[in-house]
Each structure stands twice: as structure tokens, then as C-alpha cells.
Amino acid sequence: MRVTVLGTGTMGAGVAGSLLREGHEVTVWNRSADKAAPLGDRGATVAEDPGGAVTSAEVVLLTLFDTDAVVDVLEAAAGDAPEDAVWVQCSTIGVAGTETVVQLAAKYGITLVEAMMLGTKAPAEHGTLTMLAAGPAAELDRIDPVLDAVGAKTIRAGEQVGAGTALKLAANAWIASITAATGQSLAVATALGLDPALFLQAIEGSASDSAYAHTKGAAMIDGRFPAQFALDGLRKDIGLITDAARDTGVSTVLLDALGRVYADASAAGHGGDDIAAVGTAF
């Protein structure tokens, strides 16, 4: 399929690479052109502007950082895409942001679905993301080849755009919690005079075990945090989750605490590091 990826940051670049590997005809654009250029060496067409990127697209993926970026890019490109193109909102922008984009799509007569990406840099590069999709079934059927190229599985959360976002917020609340909890347990073990690796050995194979705890825990013990999922990106998501919880009457006690501990790690200079750097806050 002819697929355009608007936004080639950590996730967008990985997704574009997976699409190329699976034989799709890929066009890419990024506000910072240097981040899109390497994909040109791999066979993608590198566009100079969003409008030029979508002129022949069958599927347009929006893989951007926040609501403002999605709105700016969508407005810049909306009039240049074929009328039958399916636009896929993949950016984590929360409930209010998603509502804004849905309204904007209606204004421009755009066919919009969403496919949230559950995973980090490596799964994006390897095509093993979990895709959390939502929208009319017929439109999701049309983009199945794209979702299959970038994900190991797709979960259809509902036929209304916003259901995928809701599921992504719930999933990222879990990721934020388990990563911070891993850092806390390692810090407690260390403070009590133990080798922190003993904590990971203790939970291994038990009902409380988690592959994520081992992955992030190993980075915490090593003290090196090459970014798979940037800490400030998760901080942004925690804010979106907190807003959604507050608006629907869910207690934000744990979310507020998570917000503080990730903010502490960011303030110490780890905002661009992997989320495992939250362990430094303890």
C-alpha cells in the first residue's frame, strides 16, 4: 500500500522502517528533516512538507508528539490527500486531544481511525508493536495490511475513535506504575544492604513476575538509560491519564505520586533518557 508517515521521531521512524521491510510504498515527512533523511536511504520518499507527503497516499499515519503537533500537521496536509485516504491517528494525545482531532477531521471530510502504538523503540523497529485500534470496522479492515506490518497483534477497542486512546491511557498507567515500582524496590533492597539484583531473582518465575521489571530493572542496576521510551514522553502521558481520571471521577492519588517521581527524575536531567531512569528519583 501507499503509506505516508507524518512524524519520524523514535516511533515514527521505527514504524516507517517496518513498513518498508514489508514491501509497502512509504513516504515520510518530519519537521526536522534530518530525522527523516535516513529513511530515504532505505527506500522511502522523503517529502519536504506535509501536503506533498500525502498527495498519493492510501493511508496516512500521524505519529507525532502532542495535540498541537497533530492539529498543525493535519491542517497543513488535509486538502492535499486523496478523498478516499484513511488517516490513522497514532499519537498519544489523550481524551480531549482526540476529540479535537475528530472534530477537525469532520471539518475537512477526512476518514479518521486510530491505532495507538503499545510498545517502545525496539518493537516499532521490529514490527512487533501491539496496535490498539478504533473506528468503523470497514475502515479498519482497509488498513489491516499496515497494522500487520508494524504490529504483532491488533486489538480493536471499539468502532468509535477514542476507544483506542482510552485503552492506551490505561496501558500506559500500568507501564508508568510498574517501572516506578521496580525502581522503588531496587532502591529499598540497596538501602538495606542487599545486591539489588536479588529482588529480580526473588520475583522471577513467581505470580508477581514481570518481564518489564527485568528489562527496566537491569537498566536501573546498570545505570545506563538509552532511550526506548523517553521519560518526558511518559511524563506527558501521565498528565493525560491524570486529566482523564479526574474528569471521570477516578482517584488520582497514585497518578499524582507517579507524576511527582517522574518529574523529579526529569529535573535531575533524565528527561531524554529511557523511562528506566525514574529509578534515580529514589
Rank of each mutant, 00 (worst) to 15 (best):
H24I: 07
R142N: 09
T252P: 00
E75Q: 14
V253M: 02
A138Y: 08
K153V: 12
S210I: 01
D41A: 15
E125H: 13
M220R: 00
T280G: 06
I93R: 04
L198C: 06
R31A: 06
V250D: 00
G17P: 03
A257T: 05
M131K: 14
D264T: 13
G135T: 12
N172Q: 04
V54C: 03
D243K: 04
T128P: 08
E83H: 06
D232R: 13
A36I: 05
G162S: 09
L62H: 09
E58L: 05
V253A: 06
L39E: 02
V188W: 12
S91H: 05
T63G: 13
V250E: 03
G158S: 04
I241R: 00
Q160M: 10
L6P: 11
A211G: 15
I241K: 00
A197K: 14
A96E: 15
A149V: 02
Q160K: 14
T280H: 05
T63L: 15
A152D: 14
A213T: 06
G158F: 04
E139R: 08
L167R: 07
I241M: 01
G272A: 15
V60N: 06
G249I: 01
G151E: 05
V26L: 11
T130F: 11
T179P: 00
K236M: 01
A244R: 00
A202R: 02
P145S: 01
E204K: 13
A276G: 02
V86E: 09
R156M: 08
K236Q: 05
Y212E: 01
G151Y: 05
T27P: 08
D256L: 01
A96G: 10
A171K: 07
A36Y: 11
